[in-house]
Computed example of a mutant assay.
Amino acid sequence: MAARPAPVAASAIARELHLPRSTVHHLLNTLAAHGFVLHLLEERRWALGTTASELAGGFARQQPLARLGRPLVAALADRLGESTHLGVLSGADVIYIVEERAPRRPALVTDVGVRLPAHLTATGRAMLAALPAEQVRALYPDVAAFSTRTGRGPRTPRELRELLRGIRVAGHASEDGEVTDGTRSVGAAVLDASGWPIAGIATTWSSDGPEPPDAAAAVVQAAEELRRRLR
Rank of each mutant, 00 (worst) to 15 (best):
A3F: 13
R4A: 15
P7R: 10
V8L: 14
A9W: 01
A12T: 15
E16Q: 11
H18I: 10
H18Q: 12
P20I: 03
S22K: 15
H26A: 14
L27N: 02
N29M: 11
A33Q: 14
F36E: 14
V37W: 09
E43G: 13
W46V: 13
W46C: 13
A47E: 09
T50F: 09
T51Q: 14
G57T: 03
R61S: 15
Q63E: 11
R70K: 08
L72C: 06
L76F: 01
A77V: 08
L80S: 00
L86Y: 00
V88W: 01
G91Q: 10
V94W: 00
I95P: 04
Y96Q: 01
I97Y: 07
G113L: 05
G124C: 06
Q135W: 06
L139Y: 10
D142L: 05
A144N: 12
A144C: 09
F146S: 05
T148F: 11
G153L: 11
G153V: 06
E159F: 00
L163W: 00
I167T: 05
H172I: 03
S174H: 00
S174P: 02
T180W: 03
R184G: 04
V186H: 03
V186C: 05
G187F: 01
G187A: 01
A188N: 07
A188F: 03
A189K: 02
V190Q: 10
L191M: 04
W196L: 09
I198R: 13
A215W: 00
A218P: 03
V220A: 14
A223P: 04
R229A: 14
